[in-house]
Write a protein that binds this DNA or RNA. Structure first.
Length: 229
DNA sequence: GGCCAGGTCAAAG
DNA sequence: CTTTGACATGGC
């Protein structure tokens, strides 16, 4: 698809969508209160798992004194597995967490500030080269742990954006560019926008009424959880 | 009981 | 290059 000049009305809708979500759900303030390392572990445990269980897994690690780079890099996978088992996919996740922590130690002696203190593209490529880290996980880590301004795309972003007619693709890079080209490159804004889309998706999942007036994006309440992927 | 969750990877078509 | 299946637990 050729790239034309950005249409003003579409740009407005991207801003307007954000404004409405923010007005309706309020600031989400995702992860800034927790440590960057917690955000990383959370991102690595997140895929295909209810956040509730990820949170439990993280608490388990913390309770065992394992929520630290060097600790997880050294702990036997079997031990870590016991704590994060509740997050599912236990054959892959614990091993990937350990491998990534070893990567952090090797790359920057486990110091996250150092690890992230490089150009975004460099860090991103570094992340994507790690086992179990795809585009969404990489960008979540960049945005919430590394404080790099990249727009995170997930299934909700694609579903909601497509549903309200913002775009008609499901390709990660295309959707990401769509938002990044229409929003100021602002860390807080990117963090908040993604969090709000998630909040909206979760809120809609509890709605049974397709014509709910309270929906901040009007007539979007039939979004539901329709098709897989 | 069945469906699904803030994906990723490898194997097919 | 696009589509499909496997991965695994717990909650609704």
């Amino acid at each position: 698809m050729r790239e034309f000049a950005i249409a003003a009305p579409v740009t407005d809708r991207v801003q307007e969508t954000f404004d409405r979500l923010l007005a309706h759900y309020g600031p989400q303030g995702w992860w800034p209160a927790e440590t960057p390392f917690e955000a990383i572990v959370g991102a690595l445990l997140m895929s295909q798992t209810a956040w509730r269980n990820v949170a439990t897994a993280i608490r388990n690690l913390k309770g065992a004194g394992l929520l630290e780079v060097h600790a997880l890099a050294a702990a036997p996978v079997a031990v870590t597995r016991r704590h994060v088992r509740i997050a599912g996919l236990y054959r892959t996740k614990p091993a990937r967490i350990k491998a990534f922590c070893r990567h952090l130690v090797e790359e920057s002696d486990g110091d996250l500030a150092t690890y992230f203190n490089r150009p975004t593209e460099v860090v991103r490529a570094n992340l994507l080269a790690q086992d179990g880290i795809g585009p969404e996980t990489a960008d979540s880590i960049l945005l919430y742990a590394g404080r790099h301004p990249v727009f995170v795309v997930d299934a909700y972003t694609i579903r909601i954006g497509g549903r309200i007619g913002l775009f008609d693709t499901a390709e990660y890079g295309a959707v990401q560019r769509f938002f990044e080209r229409r929003l100021p490159r602002d860390l807080a804004r990117y963090q908040e926008y993604h969090a709000l889309l998630v909040a909206h998706a979760k809120a809609l999942c509890r709605h049974a009424d397709p014509a709910c007036d309270a929906c901040p994006l009007q007539s979007l309440c039939d979004f539901g959880r329709s098709r897989k992927r």
